[in-house]
């Protein structure tokens, strides 16, 4: 079977070009001097300058970042608990319901999640008076909920690979489950926690549909601003904004990948030392 030019390799090449070309074009055209998006009129960074003059946009970026940091942190904590109880606790009452509630948000259409959470908040506020207003808090709760599902999947796969005998050894030597968890389990799954945090962070930063449902008049996130300007058509300013967003995400993804690779290497080295000592 030819390795270089068979059908599947051509498909892979085509697929990768298909995935990257549109973003590449977007980045190039963000440096276009012309207001007309499709006519090239020389190199310019003026659209980036205009971005920083847009107060509404800066506000939205800050709101989004604040929500994303809080949502990712809470989601990693809840996700670690969920992953731990799914992998280490065996059978407990309500396990099936719980694991369904963890996996369903991964595929549930955003419109359904957004609508149901909004109606929940409205019902709560008419019956018990909380939350008083919809805004950052309600967006945050919504984001924590779907990010927890993704975090659980990422952390769970690491917990499953982890050698349980190390935890058992610590407990045999008298460490409490809590201490074992913090001294043994957490450091071992730390790279997965980092990637779960970064994944949750980007998911929260990116969410448009759910945020639109549960937000109030005072709080506008970045995707909501982008969506309302994109609906009017293509503009060089949005291209510049998009380029900055692509840059940030690539950086975050690179860090996540680097952390995971470093952890793998460290583990491999540790095993090699163990084998040598034996």
């Amino acid at each position: 079977m030819g390795r270089k030019t068979n059908f599947s390799n051509i498909a892979l090449g085509f697929g990768l070009v298909f995935l990257y070309l549109p973003m590449f074009i977007l980045v190039i055209y963000s440096f276009n001097a012309s207001r007309l998006v499709t006519v090239w009129a020389g190199f310019s960074t003026k659209w980036y300058g205009e971005l920083f003059k847009d107060d509404q946009l800066i506000d939205a970026v800050l709101t989004s970042l604040e929500i994303a940091v809080c949502a990712a942190t809470a989601a990693v904590i809840l996700g670690t608990m969920s992953a731990y109880l799914l992998n280490r606790f065996g059978k407990f009452r309500g396990r099936t319901l719980f694991s369904s509630m963890i996996t369903a948000p991964l595929v549930m259409p955003d419109v359904i999640i957004g609508l149901s959470l909004l109606l929940m908040f409205v019902s709560l506020s008419t019956s018990i008076g909380w939350p008083e207003d919809r805004g950052m808090l309600t967006i945050l709760i919504a984001h924590i909920t779907f990010c927890t599902a993704y975090s659980t999947v990422v952390i769970s796969s690491r917990l499953r690979e982890m050698d349980v005998s190390i935890e058992e050894a610590a407990m045999d030597l008298g460490a409490s489950p809590l201490k074992t968890f913090f001294v043994i389990t957490i450091p071992t799954i730390a790279p997965a926690l980092a990637s779960a945090w970064l994944l949750s962070f980007t998911l929260s930063l990116d969410d448009l549909v759910i945020s639109s449902f549960v937000s109030g008049p005072g709080s506008t996130t970045l995707p909501m601003v982008v969506f309302s300007s994109v609906r009017l058509g293509v503009s060089p300013k949005v291209n510049a904004l998009a380029t900055l967003m692509i840059l940030c995400v690539s950086l975050a993804a690179f860090i996540a990948w680097w952390l995971a690779r470093r952890a793998d290497r460290a583990q491999r080295d540790a095993y090699q030392i163990m084998e040598r000592d034996q």
Binding site: G15, L16, L19, Y20, P22, M23, I25, L26, Y29, V37, T38, L199, T202, L205, D206, L208, P223, V226, F227, V230, G233, V234, V238, N239, A242, M245, I246, V249, S250, A252, A253, W257
Partner: peptide, 22 residues
Amino acid sequence: MIAVLLPSWTSFLIRIYAWMGI
């Protein structure tokens, strides 16, 4: 794997927007 996964980390909205220009 990273090459295939990376685009899904960037903003969904931005990726759809890119096609509007094309």
